[in-house]
Write a protein that binds this DNA or RNA. Structure first.
Lengths: 117, 117
DNA sequence: CTGAGTGTTCGATGGAGAGCGAACACCAGG
DNA sequence: CCTGGTGTTCGCTCTCCATCGAACACTCAG
């Protein structure tokens, strides 16, 4: 299936989902994963649009990482923008908080204790 | 093996987990399931100790149902007590709220409200 | 004691999704 | 142009878990 280039890579606009359109189950499922929790926390500790997808310290390959970001976008948790060859991220704090009050705070509040912070 | 001998007509005691000892991931995983969400909601709309396990309207057999209650106990969400041949339930509102503030409210708040369905 | 009702456990099955490697597409820089 | 860095997609594997049917355990009412 020789497919045309078009839909291929990260030059195509990232598909975003509005938090308002996200079901509760989708949000909970997105958030019930250790890797994604780590991503959200690291993202929360960084300024908006400063973290590229590859700059996160998680023990998975980039294929899985790309999948995780796709899930986070689908849950309305993360917004992405292309910046040169990189794709930078932003946590949708207020929008997500408006749809699921307290959930994001819960994820960040339960930070791992043990020093580096 | 020391067994509760004479006169002791006791069934296997339900194993409960204190919400304080529950990890965030465990709680989120427990809650990220449609059947268990239904159970929690129905339980929230009933008085404590008034609902037996079989009295819930969910489209699963009793084997699966028993498993779901086991998960809910393990997440510190539900407390059970044997009452005659039945096992009646209670939602651990305050205790769970203390450990995961806002989470229970989120589950109940989203009841029939429209997001994307 | 016997039978009905209730819930748990066991074994097996099916599907969802998390993971990887490789191939591909895009961008910036030499 | 070609190269290195970045991220997405595809095909595949593998593990986890939700589910069921059947067997078992227990309590209560006749």
């Amino acid at each position: 299936m020789p497919k045309e280039a078009a839909g291929g890579s990260h030059r195509a606009p990232p598909v975003h989902t509005d938090p308002e359109e996200v079901s509760l189950l989708t949000a909970l499922s997105a958030v019930a994963d250790p890797v994604r929790i780590t991503l959200i926390r690291e993202l929360a500790n960084s300024a908006d649009w400063t973290r590229s997808c590859g700059s996160f310290d998680v023990p998975v390959g980039k294929a899985a990482l790309s999948h995780h970001f796709s899930v986070l976008r689908g849950a309305g948790l993360v917004e992405q923008r292309d910046e040169g060859p990189k794709r930078v991220n932003r946590l949708r704090r207020e929008e997500f908080e408006a749809r699921f009050p307290g959930l994001l705070a819960l994820l960040l509040a339960d930070e791992v204790v043990g020093g580096a912070e």
